[in-house]
Design a protein around this nucleic acid. Structure first.
Lengths: 183, 183
DNA sequence: CCCATGTGAGACATTCTTGTCTCATGCGCT
DNA sequence: AGCGCATGAGACAAGAATGTCTCACATGGG
């Protein structure tokens, strides 16, 4: 029976997120196929990572669409975005660190598009008066990536319950650790 | 002339933070020594990473000591901690992701000590009423690591100015993105 | 039923990295 | 000057991962 390309990619993502140095053979076994077949579908390890990158970009853009980040209060849009992006968080965590490897090469234009959309969301929140203006949109975007990765790892290692993932990230990102004054 | 072990470790940290798959040969060249000499001081790649881990733990504990995290308001202690830990942030970022590789093996006890001290700091802040209690100390600790790593990478790639590193991290971690109500 | 397609298993050469070794050189010290 | 010691350069073998290839087998469609 023909191989389910999507299933292979998701298996690879799950494995590589835990062990980023996994062998092509390990990736193949994790997907339940042989190394030869894996090679028939992805020319090499590099092509596999590129395919995972494309998958991650697609899921991010789908999450941005689904969360309708241009509508309503910016803070609510951020909450919706984190909810939508949660299923892809582990893959994102892998790609976030893997991207450090593509030193010389220019990064995939998809990331630029996503960065722009998320930055625009934070900028919109600043302009509406909801977000503070002394933290740059670029930094808020980076911080969101970092918190998503931290959250994904914390869940994987059992330090945070999966059901709390969204709450922990959105609350920290939006509200911070300090207690609010009672109004 | 004898090799400066500390200089080798710091060169290796700087290189491996950017390119975690760097060869022993690349590490040696980055430190300005030959591969043979690198091998005389560190039995192998594993030993090198372990030495970097020890260095990172030592710097973290030194930062915790220097910041006197047990004294004064917890929020100020967090600010002092970030300031003290900034020079080690890049090394921490590398180790934070590299730790994902030590799957089976138990992690170095030093990290447990550090986690405990930082968690205690957040717990102290909660008990004093300064920090909110709906975010667990464990998650706040993870989030601090994640933000330190994000910040280090953002600085390395020029998305955030180095002089803003401390401010961005402490302000986001403590205050969050939402604008405060004017008192 | 027969054929075509896609897969699994394994062999194979190649490349890269590692770990070890030897030898010559340079530097400091006596 | 002579000596000892650490280093640099390079050779070498062992191992791992990769990429390619062949062959046998199964499944599904004509």
């Amino acid at each position: 029976m023909p191989v389910d390309r999507d299933h292979v990619l998701r298996s690879a993502a799950a494995l590589l997120t835990r062990k980023s140095t996994a062998t092509m053979d390990e990736v193949a076994r994790a997907a339940g196929i042989s190394r030869a077949t894996l090679h028939r579908h992805f020319a090499g390890r590099d092509a596999l990572v590129r395919a995972l990158e494309s998958l991650g970009i697609a899921e991010c853009e789908a999450a941005l669409d689904e969360a309708r980040v241009d509508e309503g209060p910016a803070a609510d849009a951020v909450r919706r975005l984190v909810v939508s992006i949660e299923p892809a968080a582990a893959l994102l965590a892998f790609l976030y660190t893997e991207n450090q490897l593509f030193e010389g090469e220019e990064q995939n234009a998809g990331w630029t598009r996503i960065d722009d959309r998320i930055s625009a969301l934070f900028r919109r929140g600043q302009e509406s008066g909801a977000f503070r203006i002394d933290l740059t949109p670029a930094w808020l975007t980076e911080a969101l990536y970092g918190l998503l990765a931290s959250g994904a790892w914390a869940v994987m290692e059992g330090r945070v319950a999966r059901k709390d993932f969204t709450f922990m990230i959105t609350e920290l990102l939006l509200g911070g650790a300090l207690r609010r004054e009672e109004p």
